[in-house]
Design a protein around this nucleic acid. Structure first.
Lengths: 217, 217
DNA sequence: CTCCAACCTGGACGTAGAGTCCAGCCGTGG
DNA sequence: CCACGGCTGGACTCTACGTCCAGGTTGGAG
């Protein structure tokens, strides 16, 4: 836990536990700042997001309604950091036993990680309604290329120079993927595999006989 | 902002702004509790997750190291609610100007929404490697049922008693999904749509002519 | 009620393309 | 040299795709 400015001021000693607790809970994405409203300076800061430190000007002139009649809690409102990060911020006027405003607490929560996650989640949409096919269903020839390519990459040999056993394996995968249920797929596969249509059917028959035998055994 | 117990106790008046600020920032998923360490009772509570209220016993006997020598901040540690929700909790001992422990602050953050989101995100994995096909590619007849069923649900009418226009629309979607590129699909579609094979081809021809005309215009 | 038009239907038909078969052509190994 | 296993093009059959047509049915108009 990085903390700057602790212990110097009695006000800091009083409010530090609360500030530290919040900073601890919110991990690295929250900055907790304790301001001196009279001097308009930073008293202490936990998890600083910028290079601010104690003594730096607070610049919280906007919420200068520090009389006891007004509300003591502000926000959450949005802040923007120089690097574009969006913050959710809340502020609270902290008063001592006399009712005098002794400090101002600001908690700045970096929303960007949450917003990125939310973007992914919302883009996920309704999975059962969304169509996954434009890539896969559409272009079954692409799929053939993909399966064959994967095997070639797998065993290192180029597309040509594949052993008979290799072709059997690839054909098994293609058959497993129901590739041959789509019209006109056989000639395409034969072309990709650099094999004649006859050979293709030969290998396929051999394969299916073998698979059937495995099933009965 | 739901808050219970405000204003009664001077300690509540002192710490309320900080508590309220945290409760505001963390929205509905954080509960902020202010305890009386002497009476071991709840002083005030923001966004209560259970039915606890002011005056109820605090039961925070575990962190009874309330002497000034020990650390004043505890956690984050894990808590379990009766309904199974997992909480991240932090506690802080709040002291008055004399150094006397006047209150204990507890912030309980419900982690379940975040954990659910994280589970979705991690399950997302590597999208280009994962295969979405075992459900869709495999069973194209299931897909037909799905598309037709979706439309039926959409317009309310039962599978039968569909108007000609409806059938045209459904067929357009099926054709768009390249369903008719797979062998033997046409008879299945005709069966599902309660239409003869001839009619199916008739509607399909009509549809494709219309689409082609739209393209040229 | 009749008539008519639009539509659906079963069935017949032509054809593309799936799958089989075979004779011939290579390679490799004896 | 031959023998042999495997690949090849081509011819063949048959499935099933897509078209067409002659009926039958429905529903609305007269």
């Amino acid at each position: 836990m990085e903390v700057v400015g602790e212990g110097a001021d009695p006000r800091v000693r009083m409010w530090a536990p609360a500030c530290q607790a919040v900073a601890l809970l919110l991990g690295p994405y929250a900055e907790v700042v304790l301001h001196d409203p009279d001097a308009d300076k930073v008293l202490a800061i936990w998890n600083p997001m910028t290079s601010r430190g104690p003594g730096d000007p607070s610049r919280l002139g906007e919420l200068d309604a520090l009389d006891p009649s007004a509300l003591d809690v502000f926000g959450p409102y949005e802040k923007l950091l120089a690097d574009g990060r969006r913050l959710s911020s809340v502020s609270a006027v902290l008063r001592d036993a006399d009712g005098k405003a002794s400090a101002v607490l600001c908690v700045n929560l970096d929303r960007t990680p949450l917003e990125q996650a939310a973007a992914v989640l919302s883009a996920f949409g309704a999975p059962t309604v969304a169509r996954p096919e434009p890539l896969f269903e559409q272009d079954w020839s692409e799929r053939i290329q993909h399966i064959v390519g994967a095997y070639v990459r797998e065993c290192g040999r180029p597309v040509e120079r594949l052993t008979r056993q290799d072709r059997l394996t690839v054909l098994d995968r293609l058959d497993e993927a129901k590739v041959f249920a789509v019209r006109r797929a056989a000639p395409v596969v034969a072309g990709v595999l650099r094999v004649s249509r006859s050979t293709l059917y030969g290998l396929l028959a051999e394969l299916r006989a073998s698979n059937a035998k495995d099933k009965t055994s």
